[in-house]
Design a protein around this nucleic acid. Structure first.
Lengths: 128, 128
DNA sequence: GTTAGTGTCATAATACACTATGACACTAAT
DNA sequence: ATTAGTGTCATAGTGTATTATGACACTAAC
């Protein structure tokens, strides 16, 4: 894992795990790496991983079976969609809008962004 | 100023100052608040403001006259446009694209975003 | 029951951002 | 020259994320 200097490690671990769940690489009910195992893998302290897992348990996206390990909770995906969407609209998007305005970025600059949005539009049409 | 928990204060001070310059609230050549004055205003230590000013001086957006104070450098705006645009495309945008993809956000969800982009499109047309 | 694998808790050490404060050099105004 | 306002540097203290380690309770497998 590549850690950014500017964000706490235990939060970056959560972000990474959340992404694994939302992209379907981790499925509801799956056992996730043990605290010690993940800590060794990404070369971080046990306590740091523990803090991350405890946070996700509090958020209801992980469940803990004593003596066995942590598992992705059954409703993790819908719970996460709610949490992440809310955070996106209240925390992430506003400063981005402001940046785009200040930097005067137009359709040409942001064609990759527009492409992703319209790709999602089509996906939703297909699902109907 | 409202400080976020998750980002260093001296960086947030820079962000705020950068925004003042890019939005034209601070003009090239303007004297900015003294280290002590700003520190008192936003209730932060002198050294923290100093660190922020020193960073911006290094970036070439502030200039220092000994015994007098800090001033917005004459080419601050174009320098900043380069720095901030580059950072936006390399650091900010990629994770946003990924989030939009994962959260399946479409044109309806992001109509405010599209509005800002198209507003900039029109601005550019008018300038020709 | 022994062993190996889980999570959990407690303690101490390190690193760094931020604070608090004092002292000094420079500049402008009187 | 004195004063007040600048930036600058040094020192020490605080809070917190992270590390390093050890010890303990629980579970599964043998």
């Amino acid at each position: 894992m590549n850690f950014s200097e500017h964000k706490n490690i235990f939060l970056q671990i959560r972000d990474w795990m959340v992404d694994q769940i939302l992209t379907g690489k981790l499925l509801p009910g799956d056992k996730i790496p043990s605290v010690r195992e993940l800590a060794a893998d990404i070369e971080v302290n046990r306590n740091t991983v523990m803090r991350s897992y405890a946070l996700m348990e509090e958020e209801g996206i992980l469940e803990n079976k004593r003596g066995i390990g942590f598992f992705v909770s059954l409703d993790a995906k819908s719970t996460l969609l709610n949490i992440q969407r809310k955070e996106f609209f209240t925390e992430t998007l506003p400063p981005i809008l402001h940046q785009i305005q200040v930097l005067r970025l137009d359709s040409t600059d942001l064609k990759s962004l527009l492409a992703v949005i319209h790709f999602n539009d089509n996906k939703h049409e297909e699902e109907q």
